[in-house]
Design a protein around this nucleic acid. Structure first.
Length: 414
DNA sequence: CAGGCATCATTCCAACTGAC
DNA sequence: GTCAGTTGGAATGATGCCTG
């Protein structure tokens, strides 16, 4: 007999048996735990919701991860007052946008094949430590297709199958001071304009992270915060942020303040807020300056492509995610007796731009299985027929939608 | 009518899988 | 073990719709 239970592709018990441990590194755990501990303190002292601090903290951890890939190339020379080399993650000089100028400088995102695996694993490492700090008895594991992540409650034997769509809001640029550069233009000695230049002082000079801070006159000022020297060990930035958090009691508050403003700007596309141009998915520069380069094909370069969106906010990803959750539910819930199976979309931040249009109308969908193909109303089933949630949760730090008590209990980061 | 956006199509990269 | 084929994620490219 053919039924959903016979589908050979996906078996929850087998998926759980072949789960992958997170294997976090010492330097990752050290930074993650410092972020969580200080975040919990900051939430109490400053009255900021812990969930928002955790969302910002995720970006900080991803910054340390992305900084593993820093090399001598990819730096942009900025000649303004005190000349610096900047290492940006959106395609514009990260200092000049604060006086309204766009200078095209290619960003340094990780390669396309690397982003997903790194954001997924680090979200899991982070969540695992958060559960420990909040005394939730949950174990987080990596899965393989079709399940991204499994979260197991050994006491209640619940198993959450999650489709993960995670990506950072913003990766702050790095900076090093440099001497003023000159060159000959039309046989005349001139100061050089913005351009890409190899950074030859990486091994012997300190590296700084560019952190915008809101001043008293509600305008941004730029802090260049010392991260020390870049070590050959690729965990150098994890260690540097760990030291920074422990040595500067203000840093986390400064970073969270910046992040919340950037997230607001991202959500409503506030192009007037300068930090908008540091966020992923900020799109075309506006107004576009005369010197802004064209793309190879047609149109112009963007500061950050609109499709490089934040968290689960890319429309294609939302649609893919909905399919995966439906598949996990149908193939995972119907004939699994070993676990109480739950399904969820999981991200660092909710779909700030697209939630209402793409997810709001689906969040309360329930379904069941009708192989007869004739059922018209609930009463056509036997009275104890099980009904399942499409989403037991749509989960993130910035907004949670839950239809399940176990999920609501465990994913409450308020 | 141009610009911004969502969608559809293609390309690239890296990881995985199965045959040998 | 290696190697070819497959797969998934993300970037990039093209197109068409809507709006100011």
């Amino acid at each position: 007999m053919l039924g959903v239970g016979d589908v050979p592709e996906f078996d929850v018990a087998e998926a759980f048996a072949t789960r992958q441990p997170l294997s976090p590194k010492t330097s990752e755990l050290s930074l993650v735990n410092e972020v969580i501990l200080q975040g919990m303190r900051l939430s109490k002292s400053a009255g900021i919701p812990l969930s928002e601090i955790l969302a910002a903290g995720y970006d900080l951890i991803l910054m340390a991860e992305y900084y593993k890939d820093v090399t001598n190339t990819g730096w942009g020379y900025c000649p303004e007052h005190s000349p610096h080399l900047f290492y940006p993650y959106t395609n514009t000089c990260p200092r000049c946008i604060f006086h309204g100028e766009f200078h095209f400088t290619p960003g340094n995102k990780p390669g396309s094949g690397r982003i997903g695996e790194r954001t997924r694993r680090l979200l899991c490492v982070y969540l695992q430590q958060i559960f420990l700090h909040l005394s939730k008895p949950l174990d987080v594991y990596l899965g393989s297709e079709p399940v991204d992540v499994m979260i197991h409650d050994p006491q209640k034997n619940c198993l959450l199958l999650a489709e993960v769509k995670a990506s950072p809001l913003c990766t702050l640029p790095l900076a090093t001071p440099t001497s003023r550069l000159t060159g000959k233009i039309d046989e005349e000695v001139m100061e050089l304009p913005h351009q890409e230049i190899p950074n030859t002082s990486l091994s012997n000079e300190n590296i700084f992270v560019l952190l915008p801070r809101m001043g008293d006159s509600s305008s941004w000022t730029i802090d260049l915060i010392d991260l020390g020297k870049m070590e050959s060990d690729d965990s150098w930035a994890y260690d540097a942020f760990d030291r920074l958090l422990k040595g500067n009691v203000h840093f986390l508050k400064w970073f969270v303040d910046f992040w919340r403003s950037a997230f607001d700007a991202y959500s409503i596309r506030d192009t007037m807020n300068s930090v908008f141009w540091l966020t992923n998915g900020c799109g075309q520069p506006s107004p576009r300056p005369a010197h802004w380069p064209r793309r190879a094909g047609s149109g112009y370069e963007s500061v950050s492509d609109g499709k490089t969106s934040v968290g689960m906010d890319r429309t294609d990803d939302i649609k893919k995610g909905i399919y995966q959750v439906l598949k996990l539910g149908v193939e995972g819930k119907l004939n699994t007796h070993e676990f109480d199976v739950k399904t969820a979309l999981l991200s660092n931040v909710h779909a700030a731009r697209h939630y209402e249009e793409y997810l709001a109308s689906l969040q309360d969908i329930v379904w069941t299985w009708d192989p007869s193909g004739t059922v018209k109303k609930a009463g056509d089933f036997e009275s104890d027929k099980s009904i399942y949630n499409l989403f037991d949760g749509i989960l993130s730090f910035t907004r949670n939608v839950t239809r399940d008590e176990w999920i609501a209990d465990n994913f409450n980061f308020k």
